[in-house]
Design a protein around this nucleic acid. Structure first.
Length: 479
DNA sequence: TAGAACGGCGCG
DNA sequence: AAAGCGCGCCGTTCTA
């Protein structure tokens, strides 16, 4: 733990210098490719609109001349459930309204909820409806497509509107985006998150689509001719932090061992254990868990999702609603609890850490980070159970998220002078990922230098891991 | 008519 | 659903 003075001098002040450097250099952006892509997206968007127009006329929008505005969830909801007459989705897709507080027999106050309310129209709900009503699957799919296309168009228009042209660190004229890091530039003066993570705004480059992106948006963030994009990611940084914390608290090293280099992939190992050894044979059969899949993903992805959800306090109720079997039905609380128990049996340290956190959050009414920052959580002693539970979940998360941010910050600080020496400045940070711009042919060397700095910036009980890549753009630099 | 509230969704 | 945490941002609808 560091003193406030140490924290300021060794982390906050030098981090500010790195941030100022990133703001000055900017993020290279391929405007020509973006303009071309914008035309493509607009065309796709028009096709989706056209397909939907057929649907609206086919079902006769209850006599109204005007088709729904697909950007309005209220109008969409009306369209789906009244003119189209789709069956009601299960309870988990309802938006419920709070009616008040009730005192239970044991004196505990809990919130009371009503089933009356509006239907959700988010992506999960639309997918559910599409499965339940195959004859409307195309229509619902077109709505989902249109939403994505509209979103992508908005991204592109925003970036195109913000890009400026000037010479980069290696001398070439190119287009650049200059987001604000940390302290925001608009009316919101918050300096990033309470956990210490900082924000990247105008544009929000920490949210550039990557999962399921069919347009290749990250390829638009392209190094100028004569430069190369270098990216490095910490591997499961928050798990490493958790392993370190457990080692310090309980003297155990089960998680630590699993982070060591040369160990089998953590999530695959866990999946094999949870679905094979633990949920094998009798228990597996009894709960029909052999069919468990999270949409089309693998058991590894499911176990990974459960591990991260658990780390942040997600419970059987939540997992029961967000994990699905192969039939597309929600797993349910009971089966989800079985999966959770299996993972906790595999990693007893997590159970220990959760019990410890339950006590500490009440005692401290706050949480402490790896290097000693304190985050107040006064709700830990609220008379409302929901607020107490939330404070507990925030406590769980704070240790890992704040710790991860501190490690990343120290890595950036350690890398900065070394990268300056080889003319490869940092241009972006996305929580556990650092991007640099190297001179052509120097990407490999730059990657080595940055990796070394990132891995050795702090001494933890569990070893840090990272991997990286070099390429002409952000999208193509991935390993 | 500007701002707040809300749903929805992008990322780690 | 303050039943997984942390953010920013967009469009629609509500409200002062």
């Amino acid at each position: 733990m560091w003193s406030p003075t140490e924290y300021t001098e060794r982390l906050l002040n030098p981090l500010t210098d790195v941030i100022v450097g990133m703001e000055r250099v900017g993020v290279p952006f391929d405007m020509d490719a973006a303009s071309d892509l914008l035309r493509v997206v607009k065309r796709d968007e028009a096709l989706s609109q056209e397909a939907l127009l057929d649907w609206t006329s086919a079902v006769d929008y209850l006599g109204a001349e005007v088709p729904p505005n697909w950007g309005s969830w209220q109008q969409l909801q009306y369209f789906l459930y009244t003119p189209m007459g789709l069956n009601l989705p299960p309870a988990l897709y309802w938006k419920k309204g709070r009616t008040g507080w009730v005192e239970r027999d044991d004196g505990e106050y809990i919130e009371e909820w009503t089933d009356e309310g509006e239907f959700k129209t988010d992506d999960v709900a639309l997918s559910w409806l599409g499965k339940r009503h195959p004859q409307y699957a195309d229509c619902l799919g077109a709505i989902q497509d249109l939403r994505w296309q509209q979103r992508v168009r908005t991204y592109l228009e925003t970036w195109l509107g913000l890009a400026v042209r000037h010479a980069g660190p290696h001398g070439q004229a190119w287009h650049w985006l200059h987001p604000s890091f940390g302290l925001a530039s608009d009316r919101d003066e918050r300096a990033g998150a309470r956990t210490g993570r900082f924000a990247v705004k105008n544009p929000a480059l920490q949210q550039v689509p990557v999962r399921g992106d069919n347009y290749g948006l990250r390829r638009l963030f392209r190094a100028p001719p004569g430069s190369e994009w270098v990216v490095l990611d910490y591997s499961q940084l928050e798990v490493v932090i958790l392993a370190h914390i457990c080692n310090k608290l309980f003297g155990t090293d089960d998680l630590v061992k699993r982070c060591r280099p040369g160990q089998p992939d953590m999530h695959s190992l866990t999946a094999k254990y949870v679905f094979g050894d633990i949920l094998g044979d009798a228990r597996l059969k009894a709960m029909d868990v052999g069919d468990i899949k999270k949409q089309a993903s693998t058991e590894r992805d499911l176990v990974k999702a459960v591990r991260y959800g658990l780390n942040y306090g997600k419970g059987a109720r939540g997992f029961g609603d967000t994990l699905f079997d192969t039939k597309g039905e929600a797993l349910g609380e009971e089966k989800a609890q079985t999966v959770i128990d299996a993972l906790l049996d595999f990693d007893p340290e997590i159970r220990q850490y959760q019990a410890w956190s339950r006590e500490r959050v009440v005692e401290w009414r706050g949480a402490v980070s790896l290097l000693g920052r304190f985050s107040p959580l006064p709700d830990a002693t609220s008379w409302k159970k929901g607020e107490r539970n939330r404070a507990y979940r925030q406590f769980l998360n704070y240790a890992m998220q704040a710790g991860g941010q501190e490690v990343t910050a120290l890595g950036m600080i350690a890398a900065a002078p070394l990268m300056a020496a080889i003319n490869a400045p940092q241009i972006l940070q996305v929580h556990d990922e650092n991007c640099f711009l190297a001179e052509a042919g120097q990407g490999g060397e730059a990657k080595k230098v940055a990796l070394e700095a990132m891995l050795n910036c702090v001494e933890l009980a569990a070893p840090l891991g990272a991997s990286g890549g070099v390429g002409p753009s952000w999208g193509e630099a991935k390993h």
